[in-house]
Design a protein around this nucleic acid. Structure first.
Length: 552
RNA sequence: GCGCCCGUAGCUCAGUUGGAUAGAGCGUUGGCCUCCGGAGCCAAAGGCCGUGCGUUCGAAUCGCACCGGGCGCACCA
């Protein structure tokens, strides 16, 4: 918004300098216009002097001083000065900030969302855990990241679809059938040796028990029984997963079964295409894909010498199918232990003629649960995992989502269960929600004092003169940049950090300044500011899928 | 052995894609309620950005080497 104007001012100054012979006609630099870290350095700053210095062989600070003479800030800047070793800092007039916010007020909150997506179609695939057991906490983190990323991208003009992929054609589901079968035998009083590589969790026994209770007819043939139970168990578990996800606030647009890729012949088509293009070759009785032609990675097997297709093959087919469904961008969210898988998938995408930049894999690092300051174990093999459901029951949906989003997704996350339950400023979720409730409370009080807040028509925003007030306005407007950056970098955690910062500004302001009980005009102006603030907080929380309570 | 990620205050982590004197929160210390929700606020102390070279006006950020932690390296999924 205003950034463009600053850039214009800078380039105008350059043009003037060129005309006056200070700068050579042919220079063309691309100066930055950024928001300085420190408040004392103004609202925007540019590095143009550093870029021009070597060209005209003068020191950056000298260049800056010359350039600043040529700068015509129009009526938007309070002052422009040179600082540091040659930065040019722009200090905007308070009026500019107030008017920008007023603009948002009249145009609606939608004007705070940049249009970066331009209607492009994105498919976000996440969780995709095989229905062989309940979701654990790591899946929870992936679910939160994927869901919120979807919200972010939607809000900036992408058309987003959320998809869950199920490897129902693989061995894991077969093993689940086997496990259920053995437990079922056990329950019927037979002595069985339960192998280590079968699923150890008690839920398998429950499923077997369900089978007996429901009195369904079970095929007599062992193999038929196993595959029957595989179908039964996986579909029961999937129901549970969907339930857990629903409780967590995550709803998928589509569940996609690997088996349909085979049924519809997509796998065969993909293989034919790869062969046709010369990216598949035979060696040692197996069919290989030429990963190494595209990425720094080894060639990988598509069809084993035994004739069986690898998981990789159906995955290539799956991603080709995604493109065939006319998605422009594919985002996959994986556990970070799958990072070695990225090059080969990227290679396959290029082999099929797509831009490798249209595919992004986000990696989710592991979560350590802390209880009483100590790590709470989660070993899946022994069946003692901490499930997503347990965590949601323990700390609530809001806290769980917020905590999952408080770190960059590829960084380790320590999830302190005790902290997530605390009702104090130590707990960032409460800190943010409390601000919203506090503002709501002010509005309730205003109402009972007979101050109408339905319409701010004719409000005099120039009464907002305090530093803290201008600071809040800047914070609200900053949403635009945050959501833009968050969308472009695919980093949901930026919203979380933004909220904590924004709300901190409010709490300070609140402590120092009374909103109600001033002159009617001033009170109304402050209420107007808070109404905008409240709306941005609510929007941000909405993107995170966290509630914005009116009372707590 | 090869590859990827990470190393920033006592702890947990940000750091606007190369910018200025490196920032939050927690914890510690000391303050603030006759007043809109103290579930809050203010202030102080706290740093060799793992180490060493390099790239340049300028590096926590980019490159190389090393140290330390995590994870991958299947005709598994």
């Amino acid at each position: 918004m205003i950034r463009k104007k600053i850039a214009e001012i800078i380039s105008n100054a350059c043009e003037v300098s060129k005309k006056q012979g200070i700068l050579p006609e042919n220079v063309n630099v691309n100066p930055s216009v950024e928001i300085p870290r420190e408040e004392g350095f103004g609202d925007y700053s540019t590095n143009i002097a550093f870029l021009l210095a070597p060209i005209i062989k003068k020191s950056p600070s000298e260049v800056a001083r010359i350039l600043i003479e040529k700068i015509n800030p129009g009526d938007i800047c309070e002052k422009v000065d040179v600082a540091g070793k040659g930065f040019i800092n722009f200090y905007l007039k308070n009026d500019v900030w107030r008017n920008l916010l007023k603009d948002v007020y009249t145009k609606g909150i939608g004007s705070l969302y940049p249009n970066v997506g331009e209607g492009k179609k994105v498919l976000i695939e996440f969780v995709s855990a095989n229905p062989t057991g309940p979701l654990h906490i790591g899946h929870g983190r992936g679910a939160a990241v994927g869901d919120v990323l979807a919200n972010i991208l939607k809000s900036v003009g992408y058309i987003v679809s959320k998809e869950y992929y199920i490897n129902d054609a693989g061995r894991q589901i077969k093993t689940l059938g086997e496990s259920t079968y053995l437990r079922w035998k056990e329950l019927q009083g037979e002595e069985v040796l339960y192998p280590k590589d079968c699923y150890q969790g008690d839920y398998v026994k429950d499923l077997a028990g369900q089978l007996i209770e429901s009195k369904v007819e079970i095929p007599l043939d062992r193999d038929a029984a196993v595959s029957f139970m595989a179908r039964f168990s996986s579909s029961e578990i999937l129901k549970g997963i969907q339930q857990d996800l629903g409780d967590f606030g995550v709803v998928f647009d589509n569940y996609y079964n690997e088996s349909t890729l085979f049924d519809r012949g997509v796998v065969e088509t993909t293989l034919d295409l790869l062969k046709e293009k010369g990216y598949a070759y035979e060696k040692d009785g197996a069919l290989w894909f030429t990963t190494s032609k595209f990425e720094k990675d080894e060639d990988r097997v598509l069809i084993k010498s035994g004739g069986e297709k690898t998981y990789f093959t159906s995955d290539i087919a799956y991603h080709m199918d995604k493109f065939n469904r006319s998605f422009d961008m594919l985002v996959d969210i994986w556990g970070s232990d799958h990072h070695g898988y990225i090059p080969r998938l990227k290679a396959s995408i290029q082999a099929l003629g797509h831009d490798k930049e249209s595919f992004k894999a986000l990696l989710i690092q592991f979560v350590t649960l802390l209880k009483d300051g100590k790590p709470a174990g989660m070993s899946t093999r022994s069946g003692q995992f901490t499930t997503l459901q347990e965590v949601v029951n323990e700390v609530g949906r809001d806290a769980a989502r917020f905590f999952f989003l408080i770190r960059k997704s590829d960084a380790h996350l320590e999830f302190d269960l005790d902290l997530a339950k605390k009702s104090s400023n130590e707990n960032p979720v409460f800190y943010v929600q409390y601000a919203h409730a506090r503002i709501a409370s002010i509005f309730r009080n205003a109402q009972s004092e007979g101050i109408g807040t339905d319409s701010f028509h004719g409000v005099d925003v120039t009464l907002l003169t305090l530093n803290e007030e201008i600071n809040l306005i800047k914070g609200i407007l900053h949403f635009y940049h945050v959501i833009e950056g968050s969308a472009k970098s695919l980093e949901p955690h930026r919203i979380t950090f933004y909220l904590i910062d924004l709300v901190g500004r409010f709490h300070s302001y609140y402590n120092k300044t009374r909103v109600l009980g001033n002159t009617k005009e001033l009170t109304l102006a402050r209420l107007w500011l808070l109404s905008m603030l409240k709306e941005v907080i609510r929007n941000s929380l909405g993107i995170l899928g966290v509630s914005a309570p009116e009372k707590m």
